[in-house]
Amino acid sequence: MSASRHQDWDAAASGEVIAAHAGQQGALLPILHALQARFGWIRDEDVPLIAQVLNLSRAEVHGVLTFYHDFRRSPPGRHVLKLCQAEACQARGSRDVTAHAEQKLGVAIGETTADGRVSFEPIYCLGLCASGPAALVDGVPVARLGVEAMDRLLDGALT
């Protein structure tokens, strides 16, 4: 999902999201997912708010937040390109496609372009392993993503 679809953050709005999910058992992951879906990423200011509602220490919330690869602690680029780096896609040429995209975007995988256009991120398997290279482009699955298709994507949808 592109960052523009996200809502502006303020403490009250964050508190509402937290409260909406706090009632369930083991609420922390659902809360973090909901915050990220709403605001695009998790701010440091969210941590004490969550900790208070769930009766946890800030360190505990921080520990969970930083354990999981999905949760962002800084804003993503306008587009997010997650390209599969796992073995079955490697066997179908994903290493070349990765290198090509890195070169074209001028960043290493794991980074965001300087103009904030694209966050280029690794993902490990999308279950599209017979049709690789596979990717999630702003949340939409794309397969058979060879070098030429990657070019079209970077010059088209991701501009």
């Binding site: 058992q25 083991g26 609420a27 922390l28 992951l29 659902p30 973090l32 997912h33 769930l54 520990g63 969970v64 354990f67 999981y68 690869h69 999905d70 949760f71 993902i123 490990y124």
Partner: peptide, 23 residues
């Protein structure tokens, strides 16, 4: 419940920890 991109959470006890809202 939805995971959060950690391969190790497929290990059964790590998965239970994750369901409980922990690392």
């Amino acid at each position: 419940r939805v995971g959060a991109g950690a391969y190790v959470c497929g290990e059964e006890t790590a998965l239970l920890e994750s369901l409980e809202g922990k690392r």
